[in-house]
């Protein structure tokens, strides 16, 4: 079945088409859920909920759309609902992780170089786990934006649509989220509070 025929069958609620969908795209959805949640049980729940949501919203699958893009968006939204329940720092706390400046605009801190190249550091499982924890610690708006833009590779406009904000707000949140995450990672890697 080609993609156009599959879309037509999905839109009509055909059971066989949905089985094809699950078998063809299930692995990719599981991968998205794992990247965002880092928990196998949560990822399985999200995959199941995402396919049920896809069935419920089958009429929203545009006839000329890509199934992969449509499902990716549904899976990301479902994973974000799951992430919403996890603990994280309050929104305003992000300010404490942004760079500080002296009068005249000079950095208030001196940044210690990281001891290893980032590819080498992240090859250690425990460091990768710590970075995942650092991402999860970020306030929700920054965490979500960073995951969608830098991890899922979604465009600014797609991210803005999913989180119901403007592309300009996405730019600001992404920049602040990255800066806050840099501080958290730097503390892990160097023990330096800057």
């Amino acid at each position: 079945m080609d993609e156009a025929a599959l879309i037509e069958a999905l839109r009509s609620g055909d059971g066989q088409a949905f089985e094809t969908l699950v078998r063809t795209y299930g692995g990719r959805l599981m991968s998205i859920a794992r990247r965002m949640l880092h928990d196998e049980d949560d990822a399985r729940e999200v995959v199941q909920a995402a396919f049920v949501a896809a069935f419920q919203n089958r009429a929203s699958l545009p006839a000329d759309s890509s199934i992969s893009t449509w499902l990716h968006t549904i899976a990301v939204k479902t994973a974000l609902q799951k992430l919403h329940d996890r603990p994280r720092m309050p929104e305003e706390a992000v300010a404490g992780y942004l760079p500080r400046f002296l009068p005249g605009g000079v950095h208030a801190e001196t940044f210690a170089p990281w001891p290893e190249r980032v590819e080498v550091a992240l090859a250690h499982k425990e460091v990768a786990q710590q970075v995942r924890e650092d991402i999860e610690t970020l306030p929700e708006t920054y965490r979500t934006t960073l995951l969608l833009r830098d991890v899922e590779g979604m465009s600014r406009e797609e991210t803005a649509t999913i989180v119901d904000t403007t592309p300009n707000a996405v730019k600001i949140r992404l920049h602040r989220g990255r800066m806050a995450l840099r501080t958290l990672i730097a503390r892990r890697l160097t023990g330096d509070p800057s």
Binding site: G27, L29, H38, E119, L122, A128, I135, V151, R178, L181
Partner: peptide, 22 residues
């Protein structure tokens, strides 16, 4: 450099090396 490395770190930390069929 660290700003750029942070982007890489997020990608590497979240990589799913187990892409397979469901």
């Amino acid at each position: 450099t660290q700003y750029q490395d942070t982007i890489k770190a997020a990608q590497l930390a979240c990589e799913d090396a187990n892409v397979a069929d469901l």
